[in-house]
Computed example of a mutant assay.
Amino acid sequence: MYDRGNGFSNPSEQTVHLLAAANRAVDVLVAERLGARGLGAFHRSVLRTLADLGPHARHDLAAQVEAPVADVARAVGDLLEQGLVQEMVVNIGGRHEVVTLTPAGTAVLDAAHEDMRSVQDVLLGCLTKGERAQLHYLLRRVCATAARAGAV
């Protein structure tokens, strides 16, 4: 429902504000949960990429996560210290150092997935199962439109 008392001049402005507020809430809750595990969102992205696509050289991993190699190197260093990834030397067409996920890294990634479900339950607890499904469908459409517009 549109609430004129909130300082917004029109419903469109309020919708944009609500989307941004929901995004901030997700970011805060996810950061809290990942931070409790000694991770950040970028660490999770690196772990997820390794889980989904397998071992990668740092340079290739940087291309996959669309980040500078230096940022990936720092994240990999952090993950190495925690024992969540390991580096292996591969000699195929020359010497390459490859980063791979460890069993501990897989376990942390699984726990992070549970954290995402927890965040969803906190934020969507007021919605029925059908409303959650509808929201998921609508958000996928909004994100697809944003991608086509070049905003993602």
Rank of each mutant, 00 (worst) to 15 (best):
Y2S: 04
R4K: 12
R4Q: 08
G5T: 07
N6H: 12
S9W: 15
P11K: 08
S12I: 14
S12Q: 15
S12C: 07
E13R: 07
Q14R: 12
V16A: 09
H17P: 04
L18P: 00
A20S: 08
A20P: 02
A21K: 14
A21V: 12
N23K: 12
N23I: 15
R24E: 10
R24K: 13
R24I: 11
A25N: 03
V26Q: 07
D27V: 15
V28E: 02
V28P: 00
L29H: 06
V30A: 05
A31L: 09
E32V: 11
R33C: 07
L34D: 05
L34Q: 05
G35Q: 03
A36D: 14
A36K: 13
A36R: 09
R37A: 07
G38C: 08
A41E: 15
A41F: 00
F42C: 06
F42H: 10
H43P: 13
H43N: 12
S45H: 10
V46N: 08
L47P: 02
L47W: 01
T49N: 05
A51T: 10
D52L: 04
D52W: 09
L53R: 14
L53C: 09
A57E: 10
A57D: 10
R58F: 02
H59A: 12
D60A: 14
D60S: 04
L61D: 00
L61T: 03
A63D: 09
A63F: 03
Q64S: 12
Q64V: 04
V65W: 09
V65H: 02
V65N: 05
E66T: 09
A67F: 00
P68R: 05
A70K: 13
D71C: 11
V72M: 06
A73Y: 11
A73F: 00
V76N: 00
G77A: 10
D78C: 11
D78K: 01
L79N: 07
L80E: 06
E81S: 13
E81N: 10
L84C: 04
V85S: 05
I92A: 08
G93K: 00
G94I: 04
R95S: 08
V99Q: 00
T100C: 09
L101Y: 04
L101N: 14
T106E: 15
A107Q: 14
L109G: 03
D110Y: 00
A111H: 08
A111P: 06
A112R: 07
H113K: 11
E114N: 10
D115N: 01
D115G: 06
M116R: 12
R117M: 13
S118T: 15
V119G: 05
Q120R: 13
D121F: 04
L123W: 05
L124Q: 08
L127Y: 13
L127H: 07
L127C: 05
T128W: 02
K129A: 05
K129Q: 13
G130E: 14
A133C: 05
Y137C: 06
L138C: 07
R140V: 01
R141W: 06
V142F: 06
C143S: 11
C143G: 06
A144Q: 01
T145Y: 10
T145I: 04
T145Q: 14
T145M: 02
A146H: 11
A147L: 03
A147M: 04
R148D: 01
G150W: 01
A151Q: 12
